[in-house]
Structures are given as structure tokens and as C-alpha cells.
């Protein structure tokens, strides 16, 4: 069974009298330890698909299995639980809590986890920060860190609950190209260590880091191809 299996996924919005089909019958499966880029112009349904894959939203119809569980029909609270346990988000704008230190930011998913006792949280958060080479920045607040460092904190936060997938939405969009390359190198490492990574981007050279590119157009999958990296 694939890690993610999506079948005939529709997301339809009613805008006045017109029906907008943001997703118009998408079927897709992603295996464990795959490295996938999702691409497409704006309005292609890229963001909608990402929101669904991130369990931030539910489809109008269709099936969505994650790790064997159908999440398409879940309630808000069940989705929150899935997001906490199964998904590690990395955002374009980092989305760190500005008043909290790196350590506190990374601890946050553990706090909502509910199964990790308080005395283990700090160790787990430290371990995640060390993995992104920020062991010496634990007490810093986001405004004391560079853009690249902030994104590393966000990646540590995504890793800390040991999620099934890491979902990165334009992770280099707010970074200069050199820093962007460093962050992408980090994703490549994480993939090599066995993580499953889904990357949403509109930059071809970023998407090339993945093994597979899914191209969306008008709410449908237009192309689903392997990259040179995989072919090699």
C-alpha cells in the first residue's frame, strides 16, 4: 500500500452562480521515501492539492488514504491530530512564532502531540535542531536569525514529531539563491535518510531536486514524470 493514495479527488467551490473546479478528478499515489515536486501555474489547483495533502482541508468528493487511513471524511479535530502526527509543514514565510526561541518553536508540535511527556520534549527538540545544524541557536528568537536559519528551525519543527511526510510549500521562495541551495541540500539529505518529501514550487531548478514531478493544469494532472535525477 502506498503512503499516500488519492483517488478521483474533487474540490469544487461555489462562487455565486458559477462552479469553480479547483481539483477536477485527481488521482495520485506516493510511496514511502519518495521525493515529489508538485508544479503548476497559479490557478492550476496546486495550492488546493497541497492543502488537501496537508490535511488542512477536506475534498468535495473522492478518497484520500494516508498511511492506510481515509482522511477524506475526517472531522476538524481528527484532521488536527493527523496533521500533528503525520505531516511536517515547511512554509515559504517560515511561520515561526516570533516571540518564542528556536527551541520553543520546535517543541510546539510535541506540545500538541499529547503523548510526549514534558521532560522528553526538550531532548527531542534539541535532536531535531542538531539535525539541521542549529544546535548553537536554540535560545535565539526568529528575529535574531538569518532567513536560512529561520527556515532550518522550521524544518526542525517539521521533523520533530517524526512525520510520515514533509510537506514544503515554496521553501526557498523567501531566500536568496545561495541560501536556497543550502536548504535544498538539507531536503536532499533528509530524503537520503529515508524521509518522504513533497515539494510545492514553481521554480524548475528547485523542482529538479525531486525524483518525480507532478504538473497540474486546470485542476487536473497534466504530466506525472520522473526527473533526470531519478533516471540517472
Amino acid at each position: 500500500m502506498p503512503l499516500i493514495q488519492v483517488k478521483d479527488l474533487y474540490k469544487i467551490y461555489q462562487m455565486g452562480n458559477t462552479e469553480v473546479r479547483a481539483l477536477d478528478g485527481v488521482s495520485l499515489s506516493i510511496e514511502k521515501n519518495e521525493y515529489v515536486s508538485i508544479m503548476g501555474p497559479s490557478g492550476s489547483g496546486k495550492s488546493t492539492l497541497m492543502n488537501l495533502l496537508g490535511c488542512l482541508d477536506t475534498p468535495s468528493s473522492g478518497d484520500f488514504y494516508m498511511d492506510g487511513i481515509n482522511v477524506a471524511t475526517m472531522t476538524d479535530n481528527e484532521l488536527a491530530h493527523i496533521r500533528n502526527k503525520k505531516i511536517g509543514f515547511v512554509f515559504q514565510t517560515f511561520n515561526l512564532l516570533p516571540k518564542s526561541t528556536s527551541l520553543r518553536n520546535v517543541e510546539l508540535p510535541l506540545i500538541y502531540n499529547g503523548e510526549v511527556k514534558a521532560q522528553f520534549r526538550k531532548d527531542l527538540a534539541m535532536k531535531a535542531l542538531n539535525r539541521v545544524n542549529l544546535g548553537d541557536r536554540v535560545g535565539h528568537k526568529p528575529n535574531e536569525l538569518s532567513g536560512g536559519q529561520r527556515q532550518r528551525v522550521a524544518i526542525a519543527r517539521a521533523l520533530v514529531n517524526d512525520p510520515a511526510i514533509i510537506l514544503a510549500d515554496e521553501p526557498t521562495g523567501n531566500l536568496d539563491s545561495k541560501t536556497g541551495e543550502e536548504i535544498m541540500a538539507l531536503f536532499d539529505d533528509l530524503h537520503a535518510l529515508g524521509n518522504t518529501i513533497i515539494l510545492v514550487t514553481h521554480e524548475e531548478y528547485i523542482a529538479e531536486h525531486a525524483q518525480r514531478i507532478v504538473r497540474l493544469l486546470d485542476g487536473k494532472i497534466a504530466v506525472d514524470e520522473l526527473t533526470k535525477k531519478k533516471k540517472k
Binding site: G54, K85, N95, P109
Partner: peptide, 16 residues
């Protein structure tokens, strides 16, 4: 609002 969004994305339920 943004903070609430982040917390929810990281798994905070309504009750929390």
C-alpha cells in the same frame, strides 16, 4: 490570526 493558523497546522485542535 497567523499564529492561530500555525498552531492549527501543527496540530492544535479547536478546544486547545
Amino acid at each position: 490570526t497567523r499564529e492561530i493558523g500555525v498552531r492549527k497546522a501543527l496540530g492544535a485542535t479547536r478546544g486547545k
